[in-house]
Structure formats: C-alpha cells, structure tokens
C-alpha cells in the first residue's frame, strides 16, 4: 500500500509539473501583457514611457524568457508563495481565499441536494422499471441531462425577469447580495444571500442530478441481475429490502469513484454560471484573470484545479480498496 502511494504521488507530481509548465507557456504566448492592458483600460491616450515599461516588466519578472520565469514561479511556489496578482495588487492566495467562500456556498448545497435527490430517484426508477411513471421520469431526466446549464440559467432569468417580477415569487437575479446588504441585520443578511442562491443552486443541481440519477440507475440494473439478488427474492425479502439493502449497497463502489470525480468541481465552480449570475466566485476570478492577462492568478488557479483533480482521484482509488475487499494495491 505504501509503495503504491509513493508511486502514485511521484507520478502525480510529474503530471502536475507538466500541466503547470504547459499552461505557463501558453499564457505567456497570449497577446498583450498585464501592464499594457491595465494602462489602456485606465486611459487609452496615456502611453507609458519605454523606460517605465521596462522597469515594470522587470518588477513582475516579465522580461525573463519563459522557461526561466517558470522556474522562478516554481521556486517561490516551493516556498509556499503563489506570487502577487499583477492587476489587483494582492497576494494570489488572498484573492483565491476571498473567492473560495462564494463558490463553496453554491457548490456544497448543490452537491448535498444532488445526492439527497438522486439516490431516491435512481432507486425509484429501478423499482418501477419499465412502468409508465418510470418512463416519464427517465425521459424528463434525460432531457434535463441534455439541457446546457447556461441555456437553463438564461431561461430561468427570462422567466423571473419577465413573468415573475413583482409577484410573490420574485427573486433577485444577479450577484450574491442585494443593494441594502450592508444595512441589514445578521438574520436578514442570511436571508438575502439565501434568496440570491436559489437560482444559481438550481442550475448547478439539476444537471448533476440528472447525471447522478441515471448513473445510479444503470449501476443498479447491473447489480439487480446477480444471483444473490434472486436468492434474496426467493427467500421472501420485500422489494424495498432487496433494492435498498442488498442491491444499493453493492453499487457503492462506482459511487465512490464518481464522488472522487465530482469533488474537484466543488472548488473550481463554473465559469459560465458564475459569469451569468455575476457571482463573485472562483470561476469568475479565472475568467477575469484570463481577460486581464494576470499570469500569477491564472497559474495559482490552474495549480489548484489540477491539484484537486489529482488528489481526489488518488483518494477515490484508495477509498476503493476500503469499500471493495477484492481490490488491493501493491
């Protein structure tokens, strides 16, 4: 087991090195540099003297060739320093820390909701396999699965902006807090954020829900054909008992793997949804950083995303061995 772990961690670090190197090389190729973009935004007519430009480039380490700059970045990373954002004049770790909360505020409730709803739906559709009600449910889920989140988000926004504005179903459309937020009592603040969360969390949840329910159902269908299920039925176990106790417990293995694949998404958020709902989260930070050519922030986020993916993959594999005694790692 220890051997396996060491090997995996080594391979993982090589993968991480490769990813960061590729992304670093890519973003340095983008036209425009953080300095020029920032200036032209502030005042298009103002041009910077060549001397100042060179000085600023040197300050941010942009005058060095790509490979040397990359190793500089790597060096400070090993000392636990992700660098400072060029466009926002703040440490990258602080920036990410600020944005992490809002993203988790959307992704954690949506993950919980997804699992809370997907398991009963999946089990229900196995229990009622091939009945009309199951057919309806499965078709609905399949349609939801194919509905892109940004289309759904926009349709919801149109619905709430056009039809429900002014009725008791009125919901805030954009942002995380209302205009009056600063003057509210703590309880009201919570309510305000909660109201703002409803639409984005709905969009986050429905697509994951459709996917998970189908995933559970297809796993269950495989298990339900096993001999031990037939034995249980022959011994007179009720339909409910067979499905929940005998079958579902045996589909937990792929379930664990799937969880490992979903968790990184908790932190990365969704670029598009956060953009639509102007939610101040991680995905939006990434989008803005790309636009501003803010190299340190882009690199920090890339590192975080890929690290999460690799770590959770490893965790899922290890958990696999715990859940399934047939699996051992050498």
């Amino acid at each position: 087991m220890l051997n396996y772990l060491i090997r995996r961690v080594l391979i993982g670090s090589v993968t991480l090195l490769a990813i960061t190197a590729i992304i670093y090389a890519l973003i340095r190729q983008m036209p425009g540099s953080p300095i020029t973009l920032q200036l032209s935004e502030a005042d298009p007519s103002k041009s910077i003297s060549e001397e100042d430009f060179q000085r600023m480039r040197a300050m941010y380490g942009l005058d060095k060739p790509v490979h040397i700059a990359y190793f500089d970045w790597l060096g400070s990373l090993l000392q636990g320093d992700l660098g400072r954002s060029i466009s926002r004049k703040q440490p990258v770790t602080k920036l990410i820390g600020e944005r992490l909360g809002p993203t988790l505020l959307l992704s954690v409730p949506s993950l919980l909701l997804t699992y809370l709803l997907a398991v009963p739906i999946g089990l229900f559709s196995v229990a009622r396999s091939h009945r009309p009600e199951e057919r309806c449910l499965s078709t609905l889920l399949y349609m939801l699965y194919s509905l892109p989140t940004y289309v759904a988000a926009l349709l919801l926004l149109v619905l709430f902006a056009k039809k429900l504005q002014g009725t008791s179903f009125e919901l805030p459309l954009f942002g995380m807090t209302g205009d009056e937020y600063a003057n509210l009592t703590p309880w009201r603040k919570l309510l305000d954020i909660g109201q703002h969360m409803i639409l984005p969390v709905t969009c986050y949840t429905y697509s994951a829900l459709a996917f998970m329910a189908r995933f559970i159902k297809s796993n269950m269908e495989e298990v339900i054909r096993q001999d031990y299920i037939r034995t249980a039925r022959a011994k007179g176990v009720s339909n409910f008992g067979v499905i929940v106790v005998h079958a579902f417990r045996n589909t937990l293995i792929p379930f664990v793997t799937e969880l490992g694949l979903t968790l990184p998404g908790l932190l990365s958020g969704s670029v598009i949804l956060e953009q639509i709902f102007t939610w101040p989260g991680i995905g939006r930070l990434f989008f803005e950083a790309i636009g501003e050519r803010d190299y340190p922030t882009i690199m920090g986020l890339t590192l975080m995303f890929s690290l999460m993916t690799l770590v959770f993959q490893l965790l899922a594999d290890i958990l696999y061995a715990f859940v399934d005694p047939r699996v051992t790692y050498h």
């Binding site: 993968t15 036209p31 790309i290």
Partner: peptide, 17 residues
C-alpha cells in the same frame, strides 16, 4: 495530463493565444 486540466481552463487559455 490533458484530462487533469479542467476543459474550459485549457480551452480559454488556448483561445486567448
């Protein structure tokens, strides 16, 4: 390596070039 980078991150980085 390609799989571990979130798709949209890689796509946006490539497109911006």
């Amino acid at each position: 390596v390609v799989m571990s980078v979130p798709a949209l991150v890689l796509i946006l980085a490539l497109i911006s070039i």
